[in-house]
Design a protein around this nucleic acid. Structure first.
Lengths: 231, 231
DNA sequence: AAACGTAATTATGAATTCATAATTCACTTT
DNA sequence: AAAGTGAATTATGAATTCATAATTACGTTT
């Protein structure tokens, strides 16, 4: 970073967009809940204007729903949105895989190797939290490694939107093992810089993830409380 | 549309987002130009608050750039954005092609056939305007025909962002003929409901479009005023 | 007591106001 | 005359105010 880079002083509304989005993704603001304008103004120590500007942005990103004269509510992750988002994310990740194999340097791949190893360790000790973190790191690194900011931005927002589905946290042992296998295969392609192959694997990986999630959701909706789905 | 659909009364800022985006895409507001807040407030007959809310949304969509204490300027379509957007749009269209073949009903395909015919007519008479309209109708119909609103929304915004590159309006005869060929091939796959094939063709179609555009831009930047590129 | 209707309260959308940063322009200095 | 300085103007970010829509609370009627 140069010493003469322009000074960055994020405006209030930008700051608020980030903070509110985090609150939503971290599930501090629950889907379906009203966004308490007044209370948030008080706790953030800002007036309504920048907060409302931030809500407009979050609405355009799909994190909140604005209803006329009834303010903002946190958007629910509907089944339809899930079913629609996964194929799009899968397509984006396919592209990411193709490009990452061309663009990543050795250090980038090496870092992914370390996260992959961490993921295997987490799997071995059934440490879900560490697993999810490593998994997310890998996917993010691949997308970022594609070197395409448009792709990165689209992926980031879409992934954030569906990530907050709480059931994403569950993961059956079968699916977990399968996901690990898929990741091993992906690493192979990455090592060989087989972009085409990595892209296809990443696409299928996402589709399998979606399928597992759907199976779990359908089972759940039938009343049976299963151990849990997805990764 | 049901008789009991919720009443839609778009808020001022929603209306303004649409209107301003149109002004930008239609090139009434030129890239790099400052967005004249006051003047727009006057001509739209609204106060600054909803207009500024709209600008925040447009900024998050990438149509304007907000600079601290210096207001909004219309975002330029940079070469980097072009180079990054095309692969993403291509990936989205590939997915659209796959899904459209599954989802479109006979009427949907029939309508696309009529637009395809219109496109051929326009090509025969070298009617660029009619050609672009038919071409856009076809791509839009295929994306919409995928029946995936997330996909449709992402595609719509990305396409709008790059569409306003004025040079998109140019089209060399060679590339034009090639594009027609590609569309013929696409129609074949659509008729045969070969989603895989259609998707691959649509992806390649977009990549070819990008390549043609890049060739034209590079030639232009070397000073030669070419007849014009792309479709 | 339940249901309806009306008044009071609250929350929201939008306009206005206010403080401050940026720009412009006149003026000084060399 | 050109360059630099500083005051005046303008534009922007944010707070506040205002009008109105929605919700709640209450009282009335059956």
């Amino acid at each position: 970073m140069s010493l003469t880079d322009p000074i960055r002083r994020p405006s209030l509304h930008e700051e608020l967009v980030e903070r509110l989005r985090s609150l939503i993704v971290e599930d501090a603001l629950k889907p379906g809940e009203k966004v308490p304008e007044k209370a948030l103004c008080a706790s953030f120590g800002v007036s309504r204007t920048p907060l409302r500007e931030a809500l407009k942005v979050l609405a355009s990103e799909g994190f909140v729903i604005l209803t006329a004269n009834r303010g903002a509510t946190v958007a629910k992750v509907t089944r339809a949105e899930l079913d629609n988002s996964f194929p799009v994310i899968a397509a984006l990740e396919q592209l990411a895989g193709e490009l990452a194999c061309q663009n990543l340097d050795a250090a980038g791949i090496a870092w992914i190797e370390t996260r992959h190893a961490a993921m295997l360790t987490a799997f071995a000790s059934r440490d879900r939290k560490a697993y999810f973190q490593a998994n997310q790191d890998i996917h993010q690194a691949l997308v970022r490694g594609a070197g395409n900011e448009v792709l990165e931005e689209q992926h980031r927002l879409l992934a954030a939107r569906i990530q907050r589905a709480r059931f994403m946290a569950n993961l059956s042992d079968d699916r977990w093992a399968q996901a690990i296998d898929e990741h091993e295969a992906m690493m192979d392609r990455l090592r060989g810089r087989d972009g085409e192959g990595l892209g296809q694997l990443m696409k299928r990986h996402m589709m399998n993830k979606h399928a597992a999630l759907v199976r779990a959701l359908d089972a759940e909706s039938l009343g049976e409380e299963t151990a849990g789905p997805s990764d």
